Computed example of a mutant assay.
Amino acid sequence: MTDEVSISRRRLLATSGSVLAAGAFGGCLGGAPSEGGRSGLPSKVEVTMTSRPTPKFEPRLTHVAVGGTVVWTLESGDHDSTAYHPDTYGPNRIPPDAEPWASETMSAVGETFEWTFDTPGVYDYVDTQAVCTAHEQIGNVGRIVVGNPELDPDAQPALRPPQSELPRIARTRLEELNEQTHSLLSDEATTSTEEP
């Protein structure tokens, strides 16, 4: 095998590995590459809500294009999706100019709620359902990243440390989401500067 063929093969394998890794990571974030807009981000993502084995949003972190829609679908239990905002529930953890949302409680399997995100930024939300146990108390929180916002806590309240009045496990989950968001947006910034 010549050196030229060997180098080409390594490039092909490296490129294939990067594409596969990006596809797997995008899938974990609820993205569907075929639905991407000009930004390459999905225009619609689905988040499931389940109670088994514990209440959770899946995936907990989603990434959608500006103007994209998130659809929450109930798989089991009783759940809602509510923005962390003084007008809906708790402290503000969404962009300053963004509209907060609060779904009704969903209890029928397959029931959905959707919200379209026109303002780029980072949005935290919570399951406020308290039929048996307050789901926030056990860390059922989620995050939506809309577009590719700057990693600036002054402009993105969700990137600030979680407020002390939030339950301990919710704070822990939000801190984990901050780390994941920094990694996600830093990786995308690096990728976009490397593209020709």
Rank of each mutant, 00 (worst) to 15 (best):
Q180T: 03
T48Q: 03
P86M: 09
E104F: 06
G26W: 10
G67F: 12
E46D: 09
T69M: 07
Q129K: 08
P86W: 13
S6I: 07
F117Q: 02
I94A: 03
Y84R: 04
A155C: 14
T190W: 11
F57Q: 03
L61Y: 11
A21E: 09
S18T: 06
A170I: 10
P42R: 02
R171Y: 08
E104I: 06
E4H: 10
V71W: 07
A155D: 15
E75P: 00
V19S: 12
T2K: 08
P162E: 10
G27P: 06
P33K: 04
P120H: 10
A189S: 15
E114W: 02
P162M: 12
L184I: 04
I7S: 03
E150P: 05
P100I: 02
Y89C: 04
W101M: 11
P55R: 07
T54W: 05
R168Y: 13
L12Q: 14
H182G: 08
Y89L: 06
W101K: 05
H79L: 05
P161R: 14
H135E: 01
D97M: 08
V126A: 06
E194F: 09
T172I: 14
P91R: 05
A24M: 13
P153W: 11
G27D: 09
C132V: 12
A65T: 02
I169P: 00
D87V: 09
P42V: 00
A24G: 04
P86K: 12
Q180W: 10
D78G: 05
V131H: 02
P161V: 12
L61G: 14
S34G: 07
E165G: 09
V5E: 14
D127A: 00
A14W: 03
I144G: 01
Y84M: 13
D152W: 05
G110W: 07
E165M: 13
P120G: 08
L185C: 11
G68R: 09
A108H: 10
S39G: 03
V141D: 08
A158Q: 08
E104K: 09
D127W: 01
G110A: 03
L41N: 00
L151I: 15
E46I: 14
R60S: 10
